[in-house]
Simulated scan of single mutants.
Amino acid sequence: MWGIAAGILQSAKNDNNNEDVWGWSCVDNKRRQVFADKVDYALVCRMQSWSLVCCLIEVVLECIAILLYSVVFYRYYSKQRLRKSMDVRD
C-alpha cells in the first residue's frame, strides 16, 4: 500500500506540470505571491517532498519486517520437521 501511495505521489507530481494536489506549492506563480502572507509555501513544499521520503522508508521497513518474519517462521518450521524426524528415528 505504501509503495502504491509513493508511486501515485511521484507520478502525479511528474506528469501534471505542478498543477496537481502535490506539486502546487513548489511552483513560483501568482497564487504564491498573492497568498505568501497566509501560506508558507516553502514549508508545504518540503512537507510534500518528505511525505514521499517517508513512504519509501515505510516500504523498506515493511520489507525488512516481512523478511524477518519469513526467516523466523522458516526456522520454526524446520525445527518442527527435525523434531519429528528425530522422534521417528528414536
Rank of each mutant, 00 (worst) to 15 (best):
M1P: 15
W2I: 06
I4H: 15
I4C: 15
I4T: 15
I4F: 15
A5Q: 10
A6V: 01
A6C: 05
L9T: 06
L9D: 09
L9I: 04
Q10V: 05
Q10L: 10
Q10D: 09
S11L: 12
K13H: 11
K13E: 10
K13M: 12
K13P: 04
D15A: 12
D15Y: 11
N16I: 00
N16C: 13
N18G: 04
E19L: 00
E19D: 02
E19F: 04
D20K: 03
D20I: 00
V21G: 06
W22I: 03
G23C: 01
W24H: 04
W24Y: 03
W24D: 04
S25A: 09
S25H: 03
S25I: 00
C26I: 00
V27Y: 00
V27E: 01
N29Y: 00
N29I: 00
K30M: 10
K30W: 13
K30F: 14
R31P: 06
R31D: 06
R31N: 08
R32S: 01
Q33T: 07
V34Y: 07
F35L: 02
F35E: 02
F35G: 03
A36C: 01
D37V: 00
D37Q: 07
D37H: 09
D37L: 04
K38S: 13
K38I: 05
V39R: 04
D40P: 15
D40A: 11
Y41M: 06
A42S: 13
A42M: 07
A42V: 08
V44K: 11
V44Y: 12
V44Q: 10
V44W: 10
C45K: 01
C45L: 04
C45W: 01
R46Y: 08
M47Q: 14
Q48G: 12
Q48W: 08
Q48L: 09
Q48F: 11
S49F: 11
W50M: 15
S51I: 13
S51K: 14
S51V: 10
L52R: 12
L52H: 14
V53A: 11
V53L: 09
C55F: 13
C55V: 04
L56A: 05
L56C: 09
I57G: 13
I57S: 10
E58A: 15
E58L: 15
E58G: 15
V59G: 01
V59I: 03
V60F: 14
L61S: 11
L61G: 14
C63F: 11
I64A: 05
I64F: 12
A65F: 07
A65Y: 08
I66M: 12
I66C: 15
I66A: 14
I66R: 13
L67M: 03
L68M: 07
L68V: 10
Y69R: 02
Y69T: 02
Y69D: 13
S70T: 03
S70Y: 00
V71N: 05
V71H: 09
V71M: 06
V72A: 10
V72W: 02
V72P: 05
V72D: 05
F73E: 06
F73I: 01
F73V: 01
Y74M: 12
Y74I: 07
Y74V: 09
Y74N: 12
R75V: 03
R75G: 12
Y76N: 05
Y76P: 07
K79A: 02
K79E: 01
K79W: 02
Q80E: 04
Q80K: 09
R81V: 05
L82M: 04
L82P: 00
R83S: 08
R83Q: 07
K84M: 11
S85I: 07
M86T: 06
D87S: 14
V88K: 10
R89E: 11
R89D: 13
D90H: 13
D90K: 08
